[in-house]
C-alpha cells in the first residue's frame, strides 16, 4: 500500500478526507437529532449515518476493503450471530404466549 512517497501522499490525503467526512457526518447527525422528528424516523436516519461512518472507519481506516477473504468470512459469521443476539430477545417480547398481559 505505502510503496513509495507518491502513493504514500495519496493515502494520507485520503485519510484526511475521510476524517473531514466523519466530522461532517457527525455534525449532521447531531443536527438531525435536534430536529425532534418522529422517533422512528430519527432512529433510522441517525443509525444509517452512524453505520455509514462506521463502514468508513472499517473499510478505509482498518483497510477492511482490501483484506483477505478469510477475515471476511470470520466477520460475516460474527455479524450473523450478532443480529440473532440483538433481535431474538425482542421477538420474545413481541410474540408472548397468548393470554398474558404483562411484558416480562
Amino acid at each position: 500500500m505505502i510503496a513509495d512517497q507518491n502513493s504514500a501522499q495519496k493515502e494520507i490525503r485520503k485519510y484526511l478526507l475521510i476524517f473531514v467526512v466523519l466530522l461532517s457526518l457527525t455534525l449532521m447527525n447531531v443536527f438531525v437529532s435536534r430536529l425532534h422528528l418522529n422517533i422512528s424516523l430519527t432512529i433510522i436516519i441517525v443509525l444509517s449515518v452512524a453505520a455509514f461512518e462506521a463502514s468508513l472507519v472499517a473499510c478505509q481506516l482498518m483497510h477492511l476493503i482490501s483484506e483477505e477473504k478469510l477475515i471476511y468470512s470470520f466477520l460475516v459469521l460474527t455479524v450473523i450471530f450478532f443480529v440473532f443476539a440483538l433481535f431474538i430477545p425482542l421477538w420474545g417480547i413481541f410474540n408472548p404466549i397468548t393470554g398474558s398481559t404483562h411484558v416480562p
Binding site: T26, N29, V30, V32, S33, I39, T42, I43, V46, L47, V49, A50, E53, A54, V57, A58, L61, M62
Partner: peptide
C-alpha cells in the same frame, strides 16, 4: 491500530444511540 479503530467504531454507535436518540 486495528484495535484502536475498533474502539472508535464502537464509540460512533455508542454516541449516536445514547446521546442522539
Amino acid at each position: 491500530g486495528l484495535y484502536w479503530h475498533f474502539v472508535d467504531l464502537v464509540w460512533i454507535f455508542l454516541f449516536s444511540v445514547m446521546y442522539l436518540l
